[in-house]
Simulated assay, not measured.
Amino acid sequence: MAKAPPNQTREEQLARRRAAEEEALLREVDDAVRQGDMEHFGQRYGKPILALVVVAILAFGGYLFWQARLDGARERNAETLTVALDQIEAGNLQAGADALEDLASNGDGIARVNALLLQGGIASQQGNSERAAELFGEVAEDADAPSILRDVARIRRVAEQYEGMDKAAVVRELAPLAKPGQPFFGSAGELVAMAHLEQGNRREAGALFAEIAKAEDVPDGLRSRARQMAGVLGVDAVVDVEQLLEDQGVEAEVAPPAGQ
């Protein structure tokens, strides 16, 4: 306790002491009330809060377990695809197809889509167009597959069935993809142009071949074929004559100087 100022009277000293004691008592009472509130809160809400904490911990643990399983599944799928690709590159097509069978039949997600596309490619190389079209069709009709892979599958399915398809159906199926700027404009456009030609639509076929020939993002081999077809149909598809001659290894004739 602090010393009382020397000029305080006895009554003032007693009053100051009582105030200090009352303050200490109030502090003890306040602490006791706070402790009682915490005990009451714990009794009332402790179990529910503990249950929530346990549930949160279990949920987090379940999430980690799920992630681990997904990572493991991804690794297994990647290994399966790698083994299949190794077999395909080695020329063992049937071994590659067999390695993909379980993933294509029972897998899910992008791994299954890739397996189906690879199996379709193998069937095509083996000359089994019907099986190839069936496999590509599974991807083309899979709403969960990435759109760009569905487009690839649509083009490949039509290519496998082209000879037996109604050519108007070919145009309907691939016309949305046979437009400049589309990722597979060249491949889809060539099939649509050929379908137009077989229907007798020479103008549409020639115009589309010319667009393919002028598209800079189309492979050179396909552009060359399209340029030749456009020329046969009477459509000029050459944008830069000098560049074309250079690409074909032909030296352009140099005009003689004036006066000679």
Rank of each mutant, 00 (worst) to 15 (best):
R156D: 07
R156L: 14
R156E: 13
R156Q: 13
R157Q: 14
R157A: 09
R157N: 04
V158K: 02
V158Q: 02
V158D: 01
A159V: 07
A159G: 07
A159Y: 05
A159E: 07
A159C: 08
E160K: 14
E160G: 05
E160D: 12
Q161S: 13
Q161V: 13
Q161Y: 07
Y162C: 04
Y162M: 12
Y162E: 08
E163P: 03
E163K: 15
E163L: 12
E163C: 03
E163V: 14
M165E: 09
M165Y: 10
M165S: 12
D166Y: 09
D166R: 09
K167R: 15
K167T: 11
K167N: 12
A168E: 15
A168T: 13
A168L: 10
A168C: 10
A169N: 15
A169K: 15
A169H: 13
A169V: 14
V170N: 04
V170W: 03
V170T: 10
V170G: 01
V170R: 03
V171F: 06
R172T: 15
R172L: 11
R172F: 10
E173W: 05
E173D: 15
E173Q: 14
E173S: 14
L174W: 09
L174M: 12
L174T: 09
L174I: 13
A175C: 05
P176I: 13
P176W: 14
P176R: 14
L177W: 08
L177T: 05
L177H: 04
A178T: 02
A178V: 05
K179H: 01
P180Q: 09
P180F: 05
P180H: 10
P180M: 08
G181V: 02
G181I: 01
G181H: 06
G181K: 05
Q182G: 08
P183K: 14
P183I: 11
F184R: 09
F184W: 07
F185R: 03
G186S: 00
G186M: 01
G186T: 02
S187I: 03
S187D: 12
S187E: 12
S187P: 00
S187H: 04
S187Q: 11
S187F: 09
S187L: 10
A188C: 08
G189P: 01
G189A: 00
